[in-house]
Amino acid sequence: MDSNSFSYESSPAKLNMAIRLSSLGIVFTFIVILVGVWTRLVDAGLGCPDWPGCYGALVVPNAERASDFAPHIPLDPFKAWVEMVHRYLASSLGLLAIVLVVLAWKNRHLRNYPVGVSVLLLLVICLQGAFGALTVTLKLWPQVVTLHLLGGFTVLAIFFWLRCRLGVCQRQPVTRSSLPRIWWLAIALLTLQVALGGWTSSNYAGIACTGFPTCNNEWWPSYMDFNEGFHITQEVGPNYLYGQLHAGARTAIHYTHRIGALAVGIALLMLWHYGHTKQPSIRGITQLMLGIYALQITLGIVLVLFSLPLSVALMHTAGAAVLMLCLLRTGWRLSIAQVSYSPATYRKVSHA
């Protein structure tokens, strides 16, 4: 069997491996996001004062070695291990992306293979690594922490889109449809809401509003400082652990996050109506999204009333990620109206 024949015969196996790895990547990224949020919630973001190691070591050292490396930063073994576990998992995700790029190169001769998406995934994960380093070196600067969270959701979205593209590789799309404006509005508002959630968390504004549906016993709090709350050129240098903003700024951030949740709900209702009246193929998934949204609102209320229980905060983040995946799946169904399921025919690499 010559090399050309081998490439031809092995392509289906390589394609199936890429499909399985992209599916694994979705699940693994979901876990990495939650571990990152857990790291944040237990105040372990600075559990290791350096990067990529921890007190100059690849694993958490003992107190004596840590003291020699950073005498003024006492070692907290629990927080250090939480931070390092997050780094180990994120590094493993990068290795997975490298394997997918290698497979993309080997499968580049296949029709519709998403080589560009595979490369983009690796680049975004590398950028995420840079944000991880800046999170530590800039001492939890809220801008970087928020971008790091958005980066995690971006990696999740790219893994999902890669899996969708691989699923139709070697199949010829019969009809393509442009995405409706309401879908773009919904995805934009959800992305903004995720960013607001990260900004709320990184500025420790989760319980700046007490009570629900009012905020500090007011429908429109009289003491809100939007200028300071959304002053994105905050000074770089202070330790932002536990936040630096005053109460009025944190209240403004929290209240804006509540308004954002309302805007997302309206957009999802509009998308559901669009599916119900014009696109029956997305009726089921839009109904599921409304159910997840209702659960998200419930979890948000519980977070406020019970002062940010850790388990509920993790579920709230998980719900946002699932909502994002459902919205992406809706977009995929709307973008490809029909796919031919004729047997795949693999093309040999041209050596002209």
Rank of each mutant, 00 (worst) to 15 (best):
V168G: 04
C169R: 01
C169M: 10
C169V: 13
C169W: 06
C169E: 08
Q170D: 14
Q170E: 14
Q170A: 14
R171M: 14
R171W: 15
R171D: 12
Q172N: 12
Q172K: 12
P173E: 02
P173Y: 11
V174C: 12
T175P: 05
T175I: 14
T175C: 13
T175R: 06
T175A: 13
R176P: 08
R176V: 12
R176W: 15
S177D: 08
S177I: 13
S177Q: 11
S178C: 13
S178Q: 10
L179Y: 05
L179K: 03
L179D: 04
P180H: 07
P180L: 06
P180D: 04
P180N: 04
R181F: 15
R181I: 15
R181H: 14
R181C: 12
I182W: 08
I182T: 09
I182V: 09
W183P: 01
W183H: 03
W183Q: 04
W183V: 06
W183G: 00
W184R: 04
W184G: 00
W184C: 04
L185A: 05
L185Q: 01
A186V: 06
I187T: 00
I187G: 01
A188S: 06
A188E: 05
L189D: 01
L190Q: 02
L190S: 05
L190P: 02
T191D: 07
L192N: 00
L192P: 00
L192A: 09
Q193L: 09
Q193C: 11
Q193G: 09
Q193Y: 09
Q193W: 05
Q193I: 11
Q193H: 08
V194N: 03
V194R: 00
A195P: 08
A195M: 14
A195N: 06
A195L: 11
A195Q: 02
L196F: 11
G197E: 09
G197I: 05
G197R: 03
G198S: 03
W199S: 02
T200K: 05
S202K: 01
S202E: 01
S202F: 09
S202D: 01
